[in-house]
Amino acid sequence: MKVLDKYIFKQVALSVLVVLLVVLGLDLLIAFLDQMDNMNEHYTLSGAFYYVVWTLPRRLYEYIPLGTLVGVMVGLGMLASQSELTVMRAAGISTGRILLTVFKPVMLMALVGLLLGQFIAPITEQRAQSVRALAMAGGGAYSDNGVWHKEDNTFIFINAVESGEIIHGVTRYEFASDLQLLRSSFAERGTFEDGAWSLSNISETRLHDAHTETATLAQERWQSGLTPDLLSIVVVEPVDLSITGLWEYARYLQGQGVNADVYFLAFWAKLLQPLSIVALVLVGISFVFGPLRSVPIGQRIVSGVILGLIFKFAQDLLGPASSVYGFPPLLATLLPILLCSLGGWYLLRRAG
């Protein structure tokens, strides 16, 4: 039995790896070609190449669910096409035993995805965004690619982040409680020192009832709750943050009175990704044992892609719906997983 388990494991794992490599290679090529539209005298071909390379862990993390689903359907489907699954079952090996062996590489990929999403992809994605923003700004303070942030009654825009403790192009708009603009300022550069930001080369405008007042400052100490740790979260999209980073930043936004549903949705989606993979694979396996056991490999791939897209669309639709209709983000993430799991279990029962 150990020989048989190794054979099934090898067949499924190899199929998953091949599918992931093909999908990831195509995505990297498309991403690199897409960056050519953004190139200028500072953001060159090499800069675009390094940007795409830095985003590789994030792209791999995103494709693990779909790649695992299609890979399992292809690997297990090849065994079914060659009647090997039929022989195994005729020899007395139960469907449950086969499923247990198939899920070993699946759980391994789920673990890899969890580690990528928590420890590797957030760091490399932040690096990718910082390198790209600085290159497009020409190493200076001006860029069309930046991030907005709200803190109390101050709206902040940061053009580029060189590292967690160095920022470029900091624009601040300070409002009174009645939403009257009190002050706007622009600092070319900022560094985090001794618990606060040290801004340099500041141009500011103060608005009074009957006149405005402008000034320039060489240095300014800016005390802000936007620490380097939080800043490393702000510069990337919610889906690219770590699990712990999402939770911390969502709680921080709640403290600032800002709606944090999008971050809670991303948090639950990342935390429950292993369950999403298991649910998708369960349905995919039920197709192989049931209606797709004798169809060509191309049709299995198409079926797997369609299934993965339907699952993704369901989560994407339920996410905004949770904000509109007021049900918890956890439910919006968990509902497609439960429906998928129940559907897969039902189809497997019918297939015997």
Results as ranks from 00 to 15, higher is better:
residue 3 V to Y: 11
residue 9 F to D: 09
residue 21 L to W: 04
residue 22 V to M: 06
residue 29 L to G: 10
residue 29 L to V: 10
residue 32 F to L: 13
residue 36 M to S: 06
residue 36 M to N: 08
residue 38 N to Q: 03
residue 48 A to E: 05
residue 50 Y to D: 12
residue 56 L to K: 07
residue 56 L to A: 15
residue 59 R to F: 09
residue 61 Y to G: 03
residue 62 E to W: 08
residue 77 G to Q: 02
residue 82 Q to N: 13
residue 82 Q to Y: 05
residue 83 S to M: 12
residue 90 A to Y: 12
residue 91 A to F: 08
residue 93 I to C: 08
residue 95 T to P: 01
residue 109 M to K: 04
residue 111 L to I: 13
residue 124 T to D: 03
residue 144 D to W: 09
residue 156 I to P: 06
residue 158 I to P: 09
residue 164 G to H: 05
residue 165 E to L: 02
residue 167 I to H: 04
residue 170 V to E: 13
residue 174 E to F: 05
residue 174 E to G: 10
residue 177 S to N: 15
residue 178 D to S: 12
residue 182 L to T: 12
residue 184 S to I: 15
residue 188 E to A: 07
residue 190 G to I: 11
residue 197 W to D: 04
residue 197 W to M: 06
residue 200 S to A: 15
residue 202 I to P: 06
residue 202 I to M: 02
residue 203 S to T: 15
residue 208 H to E: 15
residue 208 H to V: 11
residue 214 T to M: 13
residue 218 A to V: 12
residue 219 Q to D: 00
residue 227 T to Q: 06
residue 229 D to M: 09
residue 230 L to Y: 15
residue 233 I to K: 12
residue 235 V to S: 08
residue 239 V to A: 15
residue 241 L to Q: 15
residue 243 I to S: 14
residue 245 G to C: 07
residue 247 W to G: 05
residue 254 Q to W: 01
residue 282 L to P: 02
residue 295 V to I: 06
residue 300 R to Q: 05
residue 302 V to L: 15
residue 303 S to P: 14
residue 308 G to K: 13
residue 309 L to P: 08
residue 325 Y to E: 00
residue 328 P to M: 00
residue 334 L to T: 12
residue 338 L to P: 13
residue 352 G to K: 05
